[in-house]
Structures are given as C-alpha cells and as structure tokens.
Write a protein that binds this DNA or RNA. Structure first.
Lengths: 232, 232
DNA sequence: CAGTGGTCTAGACCACAGC
DNA sequence: CTGTGGTCTAGACCACTGC
C-alpha cells in the first residue's frame, strides 16, 4: 500500500521544515519545478501545497511563489463542555431553579436587549460522586409560543436548548474564562471556603447576525477543573 | 468580479445547511450530479467539497457519498500569550530571579527527566501601569554548551528560548488552565489578598518525539485576566 | 516579457458500497 | 453490476509579479 503522491510531497516539505532545511520566510520551489522534481502533474502538486497551506506551514502569493510561514504559538484549541471538562466527568446534574426574570442592566447589555424583555434563567448544579463541583446559570431569551419544558432544560445541550427551530449550524459560541474568589452564595452551594477559588467560564451564543441569544455562566470548584489546550 | 465556481458551490451548500434545508446526517448530491447541476467539471466540484470538509460542514465516505456533519460545539480556539492576553496588555516584564536548580520529584516527573539533571528556572513578574499583574516561572532543560544569556531570557519568546538550534516548527505546546486561591508568596509578589484569586496557565513545550523540553507556569491576578475563545 | 500561482476541463483508473 | 468518492493527467486561460 503506497501513499498518494500529494501526501508524499506534503511529508517531504514538512520534513524539510521540521529539520530546519526550510526556514520561515524561505521560498518553496515553484509548482512547475516541483511537478518536474516529483514527476507528477501540476494539479497533484497543488493539492499537496493547498494541504500544507491549510495546516499553516506555507502561504502562497499569486504571481510570486509559495513561502514557509512563521508558526503561530499563540493559537490553541481547547475542548470545552460544561459536563465533561472536569477532571472526573460530572455524573449528575440537578436543576436548582428555573424562572423568568427581567434582566438587570448588565445582563441586558450582555444580551443586547432592552430591559423590558423577559429572560429565562435556569440554575443548575453539577455533581461528581455526590460532591457539588459546579454551579451553572443559563440565560435564554424568552419567546412567546416557544415554551421551554423542563425535560429539555435537563437533557438538551445549551445550543440545542437555545436554537430550537433553527439549524444547529446557525450558531456561534464565544468563551470567556477567568478566575474568581467565590462569592458567599457560591461557597454555600459548592460547600467550599475561601481556600478554594472558582474558575468561571462564560459562554455566549450568537446567531448568524451576531446577536446574542443565550448566555451561560459556570462556576467550577478550582480543585475539580482543569482546561486543556493544544496548538496546531 | 465574479467568484470562482467552487466558492459558489461552497456558499450554496453552506446556505442550505444554515437554513436547515440540509440537516446533519443528510446526504449531499453526488459529485457527478453536482457537476451536472453547476455545469462544471467534477474536479471543480471536488475542490468545493474538500473545502467544506476542511471547514467541518461535511464528510465523505468512499464508495457511498458525502454527508452533512453534526457541528462540534466543544471545540474552541483561544489565543494565548502570557504578555498580551491580559485585559490591558502587560507593558513591562521584570526578571525576578534566574538560577539553576535540581528538580523536585513533581517537576522531574513533569519534564520526564531524572532528578540529577539540572534545570534552569527563570522567575519573572509582569506589570501593567506599574501594577504587578502576573508571576511567571519558566523551567528549561539545562544543556552544557548552550548557555542561556540574560538578554535571551528577557526578550525571546518562550519557544524561542527553549528551541535554540532546532526549527521553530519542531515544537508542540500544551496548555493547562486552572484557578487557585493565591499562596502566601504570590499574595506578596502581586500585592493581593484572599479576595483576589489567581488564574494559573501552565505551558508545556514538547519536541517532535513528545519529550518535554520546557515548562512555564504563569499566575495571573484574576482581576486582570480574561481568556477568550471562539468556536469554528 | 517570462515566470508565478489560481482556476478549470474532460477525460482516466482505482477501491469501495450495495444490490 | 452500477454508482460512489479518491487519485491523477496534460493540457488550457487568466491575473499578477518583477524585470
């Protein structure tokens, strides 16, 4: 079983880049040259170069050539899901409270709505082995005629809850991560004292027009959560 | 100025997915069908489909067809750099201490080295407008014949410091993010009390064989840091 | 002007799914 | 067997770059 030619070309160039044979800014041989070197058609060469470009190794300038890109050390991919990002996955979730509220100024600003709109607030606590490890608040725009039933709030994922009726692709999510010393309410709910901090993860859901349609804030016990990221 | 055909095809299918006309799991028309529909060659259709696959919209099964993928809400991209991720960028960095140490058991484990190897430890404090906002520890494997000079430690990025001599592409980074109540030492250095938590970001640098070659731990004042992530 | 990358074609052969 | 996606070719035309 032999690898397709365009993958061989990808590997060949990656090796030169990894070994330092090609350094950031260096020019790659032209597509014409590579097609002769590898004895393949230009389309096959292009397929490989496009893959290298997608993976951040090179970039191309029309009329000039292709060049090795400087790697970006600041981009990381993290996998975040409020139920499974804790050290030992949350095994139970308990609905603490659901109500319809009138937003205060800060929330109205976050959701970009006027303060006379109604908002659904669901409070939830996540457990691991009986230990409360996270306190979760979810704010959703309230729409007449689209009642939220408890089973949905318990079982659906946040995007599913908010995106009822629209395509799941029509949603963007933004995360904001920070640390806090726990407020009194949170100390009580999670059974911690001031020696334990909380990691706060805010999720904002946006529709295709970048209008907020939901806001989630999760307070994790610092001794039960670790977010992991990798680059590339 | 008219868009290339393969981009028109990409847009067309994205629209059907966004509108809910195509739902996750649904089959896309075959490449042959699409090439007739759009009046273009099959290679042009494939270029569009490959782009859609790269962007997570569809996946292809050889011998069967292409299908709409279920979106992944758990993947986020964050941009992290210890100097510029704070709310107002750190404007000054001060070297607090540099020394060569013998690792304790935990550090030796983290770096996967034996405890008789030497490690360089650089302690640093970041400031914003004169306020200390972060305390930073960097551990690097010590190699004879590769002296670390102070100017490098002050000015180089962490990967550059550690990767001297090797290609910058030959490095992977892993992040671990958590919250902590500040230890006494950190309270003093950052001038905070127990009402302020710290966000801890650990960076591990790995070479191509996945061996650790450097470890960085940064303690940020919780009131000065916010990490942001977006999906897709 | 010659060389470069970007787009596109009209075929071809293959391995694979499913009937 | 037919239909599917995966690979590949040998051309073509275009817009752009730099001389």
């Amino acid at each position: 079983m032999t690898k397709p030619v365009y993958l061989q070309l990808v590997e060949s160039i990656k090796n030169k880049v990894h070994s330092g044979d090609l350094k950031p800014g260096d020019a790659i041989d032209s597509e014409h040259t590579l097609s002769k070197e590898f004895g393949v058609s230009r389309m096959t060469v292009r397929k490989g170069l496009i893959m290298l470009a997608n993976q951040g190794y090179i970039y191309s300038v029309p009329g000039k050539g292709s060049y090795v890109r400087k790697p970006d050390y600041t981009r990381f991919v993290i996998s975040y899901d409020e139920m499974s990002c804790v050290i030992n996955e949350a095994d139970k979730s308990e609905l603490h409270d659901v109500k319809i509220i009138v937003p205060d100024e800060k929330l109205a600003g976050s959701l970009q709505i006027s303060r006379n709109k109604k908002v659904i607030l669901a409070k939830r606590i996540y457990y691991n082995n009986g230990v409360p490890i996270a306190y979760d608040l979810k704010y959703m725009l309230y729409h007449e005629g689209l009642p939220v039933v408890e089973s949905e709030i318990m079982n659906a994922t946040f995007p599913d809850m908010v995106a009822k009726g629209t395509s799941p692709f029509a949603i963007k999510k933004e995360l904001v991560i920070c640390a806090q010393a726990p407020a009194e309410e949170i100390k009580l709910l999670l059974g911690i004292n001031e020696d334990t901090a909380v990691l706060v993860v805010q999720q904002k859901l946006l529709n295709t027009e970048n209008k907020p349609i939901g806001l989630g804030i999760t307070y994790f016990r610092s001794d039960y959560i670790r977010l992991r990221g990798i680059n590339r």
